[in-house]
Simulated scan of single mutants.
Amino acid sequence: MNKMIAAVSLVLMASVSSQLVMAHGGATGIVKERMDLMDNMKDAVKQLKAIYKGDEEYDPDTIRNAALVIRDHSGDAMSKLFPEGSLKGKSEAKPIIWQEWNRFKKLADDQEKIAQGLYNAAENQGTASGGGMMGTNTMMGQNMMDSHSMMGSGSMMGNSKHMQQNMTNPEHLGSMPSDMVFKMLTDTCSSCHTRYRKEKDK
Rank of each mutant, 00 (worst) to 15 (best):
K3N: 08
I5S: 03
L12R: 03
M13K: 09
M13H: 07
S18M: 04
S18T: 01
G25H: 14
G26I: 10
T28P: 07
T28F: 04
E33Y: 05
R34Y: 06
D39P: 00
A44M: 11
A44H: 02
V45Q: 07
Q47W: 02
K49F: 03
I51M: 00
Y52A: 00
G54A: 09
D55N: 15
E57P: 02
P60G: 05
P60I: 12
T62K: 15
A66R: 05
H73L: 10
G75K: 00
D76S: 08
A77M: 14
P83A: 00
E84R: 13
L87A: 06
E92Y: 09
P95E: 06
I96Y: 09
F104E: 00
K106Q: 07
L107P: 05
G117W: 02
A121K: 04
A121S: 12
G126I: 07
T127D: 11
A128G: 14
A128C: 12
S129M: 07
M134C: 09
T138M: 12
G141C: 08
M144F: 04
S147P: 01
G152I: 06
G152N: 15
S153E: 13
G158P: 02
Q164C: 03
Q164N: 11
N166S: 12
T168E: 11
P177V: 00
P177Q: 04
F182L: 10
F182T: 10
M184H: 12
T186L: 10
D187G: 10
C189D: 05
S190L: 04
R195P: 00
E199W: 04
D201H: 13
K202D: 14
